[in-house]
Amino acid sequence: MIALSDLSQELGAHLAHEDSFIYPRMIQSDNALTREAASAFTAEFASLHADWTMYLNEWNSECIAEDWDHFSLVTLSILDRLQRRVDAENNILYTTALRESVLSLREGVAV
């Protein structure tokens, strides 16, 4: 349970940053494709966030112990969705944000 709690905190901090900084700037862009990408990411995130919250609420220590096999399957599924989200952020969202000057690379970061 500690690992789930730690992951949830890290995920929450990461997404709070995006929600407060990246998406609003992209949604206000003059570029229609940038606005559409940000809107699509926001909508997809809402679904993922709802499922993540339900996952955390459903799987307490007792439930995990009672049905480890199902917990494992559900966990692999939600982690796969999170990984696909991170991949999409890295390959689409951040590239678009950099191109549109919504983000800038920090000094010393290689491209």
Rank of each mutant, 00 (worst) to 15 (best):
I2N: 08
I2T: 05
L4A: 06
L4R: 08
S5I: 08
D6N: 12
L7S: 06
S8V: 01
S8W: 10
Q9L: 15
Q9K: 15
G12W: 11
G12N: 14
A13R: 14
A13T: 06
A13C: 04
H14E: 08
A16I: 01
A16R: 13
E18C: 02
D19A: 11
S20R: 13
S20K: 14
S20M: 12
I22E: 03
P24T: 02
I27A: 12
Q28W: 05
S29I: 00
S29C: 07
S29A: 08
A32N: 07
L33S: 10
T34N: 06
A38C: 06
S39D: 10
A40W: 10
F41N: 07
A43S: 15
A46Q: 15
L48A: 09
H49W: 11
H49L: 14
T53D: 13
T53I: 05
Y55W: 15
L56Y: 09
L56P: 00
N57F: 05
N60K: 13
S61P: 09
S61V: 03
E62A: 10
I64H: 04
A65T: 00
D67N: 15
D69E: 14
D69Q: 11
F71R: 02
S72M: 06
V74G: 01
T75I: 00
T75D: 02
L76F: 07
S77T: 03
S77K: 12
I78G: 03
I78L: 13
L79P: 00
D80H: 12
R81D: 10
Q83P: 00
Q83C: 03
R84W: 04
R85F: 13
V86Q: 09
V86L: 15
V86D: 03
D87Q: 13
D87I: 12
A88C: 06
E89P: 02
N90A: 12
N90Y: 04
N90D: 14
N90F: 03
L93S: 03
L93F: 03
L93N: 03
Y94E: 07
T95S: 06
T95V: 14
T96A: 08
A97I: 01
L98M: 09
S101M: 08
V102Y: 03
V102M: 07
L103N: 05
S104V: 05
L105T: 00
E107F: 05
E107V: 01
G108K: 12
G108N: 11
V109I: 10
A110V: 02
A110R: 13
